[in-house]
Amino acid sequence: MSDAQIPETPLFDRKGSIDGYRINKMAMALGDPANREAFKADEEAFLDRYKLTPEQKDAVMSRDWNRMVAMGGNLFFILKIAAVDPTPITAIGAAQAGLDHADFLKQRLGKE
């Protein structure tokens, strides 16, 4: 199952789970209101608390959803980063599809 090759479809297997562990753990913590406040107050300090690498920090702080996922961020966890902003999930989809938001809504979801 771990080598399934479905086009444009990353499966969250051991590699993602291992690579993305810190990003996901940090994001999971945002389920706690106190952590959300800490994140809003000083995002970089919060990321340091979870020992994110410089690359991971950059991806999170620039809200580069595509890179976060490529580095093992799982959408269900990083959605809690999106919840703080908030960023709509369709914008995260568009970023990964490489489309602008309006095109994504139209081409992928059939919305005018």
């Binding site: 444009e8 799982n74 599809a97 992928r108």
Partner: peptide
């Protein structure tokens, strides 16, 4: 539905 990868938005 698909939320991850470049096929995101697949229905």
């Amino acid at each position: 539905h698909q939320l991850q990868g470049s096929r995101a938005g697949f229905i």
